[in-house]
Simulated scan of single mutants.
Amino acid sequence: MMMWRVPELLPFLALGLFLGHVAADPDMLQDVCVADLSSAVKVNGFPCKVAFNASDFSTDVIAKPGPTNNTMGSLVTAANVLKVPGLNTLGVSLSRIDYAPGGLNPPHTHPRATEIVFILEGELEVGFISTANVLVSKTIKQGEVFVFPRGLVHFQKNNGNVPAAIIAAFNSQLPGTQSIPATLFACTPAVPDNVLTKAFQIGTKEVEKIKSRLAPKKGRELRPIEIQ
């Protein structure tokens, strides 16, 4: 059996420590760094404002249900650093998601955060897909929680006859959201049709039909999710 000496293990220990620190937002280096959202400076996060007050650390944006009269029957309202500047460098944020009966939060990912949801009302079918293409899914009811691991495709569906709502927490000030259908079929510039036809094993007409349905149209939103 191979025996490792401490000096030989040091590079691996250092790598482990490094990887442990890149799993979420970087640690802050001061008490607060309230985001200056008006600054033209681009950094990994936002530059700090010199003066701040309590309003920078508070919002009522998720206090009330949002309208769900859109194609997907769901609405995501984010309370991230863009709405609460005081979250800058703190590595946390919340969202509220409201669902009409039959409403769907379509398959999507958060590339920068793990998500945990708490059911405020109603019940949802939720699930995520592992990189081994295994679906982990269950129905959760009022008062229950469910976790979606960072970066994995996941969804929520209201199969009930009454509205539902959840609060979602993230270990990132700006977790990011990539809705799989919109990312592939409604991005700009467009993904080439021959890529989509081969990937999904469908014809060009089917691709164009999907694109036409997902393309933003005046007076109609596919899903009014906030860009993060």
Results as ranks from 00 to 15, higher is better:
P149V: 04
G16E: 08
K83R: 13
L184R: 11
V92M: 15
E123L: 02
I210C: 10
L120K: 10
P175F: 05
A190L: 11
V50W: 00
K205D: 14
K217V: 00
P189M: 12
N161Q: 12
T59L: 07
T177S: 06
E115G: 13
W4P: 00
N171M: 10
G91C: 00
D56E: 03
F46A: 10
P224H: 02
M2F: 15
T131F: 07
L82I: 11
L90N: 04
A169G: 15
C48N: 12
N69P: 05
V162Y: 02
I119K: 13
T188D: 12
A63R: 15
K209M: 05
T197S: 13
T114P: 07
M28I: 06
I227V: 13
S58D: 07
N158Q: 11
S38F: 07
P107C: 07
A24Q: 09
P26T: 10
T77M: 09
I180R: 08
D98V: 03
S38V: 00
H154K: 11
R112H: 02
N105T: 03
N69K: 14
D31P: 01
V147Q: 05
P149D: 10
F170G: 06
A215K: 03
L19H: 02
A63S: 13
L75T: 09
I97T: 15
S172F: 03
E123S: 15
E206V: 12
K198G: 11
A182D: 00
L90A: 11
Q228P: 14
V117E: 09
G91R: 03
G45K: 08
A165D: 08
L19N: 03
K64L: 04
L222H: 00
T59Y: 07
G143R: 00
Q30S: 15
S137G: 11
F12D: 10
D25V: 00
P67I: 00
R220P: 02
T71I: 09
F155Q: 06
L184C: 11
A54K: 15
F128W: 15
L196E: 13
D98S: 10
I166L: 14
E226F: 10
N158L: 04
T131P: 01
A215V: 06
V32P: 03
V147D: 01
V84Y: 04
